[in-house]
Measured scan of single mutants.
Amino acid sequence: TTVVVGNKKYTFDNPEAAEKFAKKVAKKLGATVHKTNGTFKVK
């Protein structure tokens, strides 16, 4: 599962961990999490 934050990509074996990370980053940046085909995008 990939999490994309700006131009950085983070890969997780565990989708739950990926989602948690994405939400944490989004909260910090005041952004939102978008899920597309198993990829979480923070923007």
Rank of each mutant, 00 (worst) to 15 (best):
D13R: 09
F40G: 04
K27Y: 08
V25N: 02
V4E: 14
T11S: 09
F12P: 00
K20C: 12
N37I: 04
E19W: 13
K9Q: 11
K24G: 08
A26H: 01
L29W: 07
V4M: 11
K8Q: 09
T1P: 08
E16M: 12
E16R: 11
T1Y: 13
K27A: 11
T36K: 07
K27W: 07
Y10V: 04
K28V: 09
K35Q: 09
K24P: 00
K9F: 11
K8V: 08
G6P: 01
T32P: 04
E16H: 11
K41Y: 15
F21N: 00
E19I: 07
V25W: 09
K24C: 14
T36M: 11
K27E: 10
K35M: 10
A31N: 03
G6C: 13
G38S: 05
A22E: 01
T32G: 06
K20S: 13
K23Y: 15
F12G: 00
N37W: 03
H34E: 15
V5K: 01
K24L: 11
E19S: 06
K43G: 14
K24I: 13
T32K: 09
T32A: 07
K24V: 10
Y10T: 03
T2Q: 10
F21P: 01
Y10W: 14
F12D: 00
V4Y: 14
A22I: 03
T39H: 15
Y10H: 04
V5H: 03
K41Q: 15
V3E: 00
A18Y: 01
T39F: 14
K8E: 07
T36W: 07
H34Q: 14
F12C: 04
V42N: 02
N7F: 08
A31F: 10
T39L: 11
E16K: 12
K27G: 07
F40H: 07
K24T: 10
K28N: 07
F40V: 12
V4F: 13
K24R: 13
Y10I: 05
F12A: 00
D13E: 10
N7K: 12
N14G: 07
N7A: 10
N14L: 08
A22H: 01
L29P: 02
K43C: 15
T2A: 09
K28L: 14
A17S: 11
G30W: 03
K27I: 09
G30R: 05
A31C: 05
Y10D: 00
V5F: 05
A31W: 15
E19C: 09
N14R: 07
A17H: 09
K24D: 11
V5R: 01
V4P: 00
G6E: 04
D13Y: 09
K41N: 14
F40P: 04
E19Y: 13
T1A: 13
T1G: 11
V25R: 03
T36Q: 13
V3A: 02
G30Q: 05
T11F: 14
K28H: 12
K24Y: 14
L29F: 07
L29V: 05
K8Y: 11
V4T: 08
V3R: 00
F40S: 05
E19R: 06
L29M: 09
T36P: 02
A17T: 12
K24F: 13
Y10C: 06
V33P: 02
A18R: 00
F21C: 04
A31T: 08
E16T: 09
E16W: 12
K27Q: 10
K20F: 09
A22V: 04
E16V: 12
V3I: 02
A22T: 02
F40D: 04
T2F: 13
A31H: 08
F21G: 00
Y10K: 03
A22N: 00
V5Y: 04
K23W: 15
N7T: 12
G38P: 04
K27T: 07
T2K: 09
Y10L: 05
A26T: 02
G38L: 04
A31K: 03
F12V: 01
T36H: 12
A26R: 01
N37R: 04
K43Q: 14
T11M: 14
F40R: 05
N37Q: 06
A18N: 00
N7P: 07
A31I: 05
K27N: 08
K27S: 08
F21M: 03
K9D: 05
G30A: 04
Y10S: 02
K8N: 08
K35R: 09
G30D: 05
E16A: 11
T11H: 13
V33Q: 02
A18T: 01
T39Q: 15
K8L: 09
T11R: 13
K9E: 09
K27M: 09
G6T: 03
E19F: 13
V33E: 02
V3L: 02
T2C: 07
T36N: 07
N37G: 12
K41D: 15
V5A: 03
G38V: 02
F12I: 02
V5T: 03
T1W: 15
Y10R: 03
A31Q: 05
F40E: 05
N37V: 03
P15T: 09
T2E: 08
K43F: 15
G6R: 06
K24Q: 10
A22S: 03
H34R: 06
A22L: 02
G38Q: 05
V3T: 02
A26E: 02
V33Y: 06
K41T: 15
K8T: 08
V25I: 13
V33K: 01
K35T: 07
N37E: 13
T36V: 15
E19A: 06
P15I: 10
P15Y: 14
V4I: 14
A26C: 02
T39C: 14
F40N: 05
V5D: 00
T32Q: 10
V25T: 06
G30H: 07
Y10N: 02
V33I: 08
T2M: 12
V4S: 07
K20W: 11
T11A: 08
T11P: 07
G38H: 06
H34G: 04
V33M: 04
K20I: 11
G38I: 03
K20P: 01
T39P: 03
V25L: 09
K28M: 12
N14V: 07
L29N: 03
T36S: 11
V42T: 03
F12Q: 01
G38F: 04
P15Q: 10
T39G: 15
